[in-house]
């Protein structure tokens, strides 16, 4: 079994983003996706702290502490990029102007529900950030995450057990074992599978029915 590495997961998602899309990347593995989109393929990356048109990470010695992304890492602005304030930035997000948002996840359900902000109703002080805005506002929502938790519990589920971030909006999941589409009314459909893993093994590590395209 050869699970996809984090970089491979990011590269797979990156390969599926067409030129011209405006894309917001969440903190964690999703942030890595930008490194795998060549500059010639013009994808516009938005960061919710008011940056539209982020470029690659700055070269050493050319970092600018006034220019950061949502993960508080220093970034660059490409030609054509612009700044706006937080309400305008979230107007882009909530107003349906972002083509794609890619977030991390605790659980994704077959009805497209995403849980990624709190691990129980009694979580003392969970941090939601912009996840709920992005979860309902982007035209498409993809999730990049490990297929199971560290102790082997499936994160691909029939219904989320953790508190929801956004209901019914996830369309695709990239994990270390597979790429799954979510088809409304049907559920998870296997799109790609890591080398050396059988469909049966993948199903055994998932807590929802996996469909295949006939």
């Amino acid at each position: 079994m050869q699970p996809f590495s984090r970089a491979q997961m990011a590269a797979k998602a990156a390969a599926d983003i067409p030129e011209g899309w405006v894309v917001n990347l969440g903190i964690g593995i999703p942030t890595l996706i930008a490194d795998h989109v060549p500059l010639e393929r013009e994808v516009i990356f938005q960061s919710e702290n008011g940056v539209l048109g982020m470029g690659p990470a700055p070269e050493k010695g050319r970092e600018d502490p006034w220019l950061i992304n949502a993960g508080k890492q220093m970034v660059t602005l490409r030609p054509g990029g612009s700044f706006c304030h937080h309400a305008d930035s979230f107007a882009m997000i909530r107003g349906g102007h972002i083509d794609l948002c890619v977030l991390g996840g605790f659980e994704v359900a077959e009805n497209g529900d995403l849980a990624n902000w709190a691990t129980s109703e009694n979580d003392t002080a969970p941090a939601v950030g912009g996840a709920m805005d992005l979860g309902v506002g982007a035209k498409q929502l993809w999730v990049v995450m490990e297929h199971t938790t560290k102790d082997g519990r499936p994160k691909i589920v029939e219904r989320c057990g953790y508190p929801l971030t956004a209901p019914g909006n996830v369309r695709r999941v990239y994990t270390n074992l597979a790429v799954l589409d979510i088809e409304p009314g049907l559920g998870f459909v296997v799109r790609d599978i890591a080398p050396g893993i059988s469909l049966e093994e993948l199903q055994a590590k998932s807590a929802a029915k996996l469909h295949t395209r006939s």
Partner: peptide, 11 residues
């Protein structure tokens, strides 16, 4: 503590 989604807070 009052937790507010970031976009809701700005708006």
């Amino acid at each position: 503590l009052e937790i507010v989604p970031q976009g809701t807070m700005a708006e």
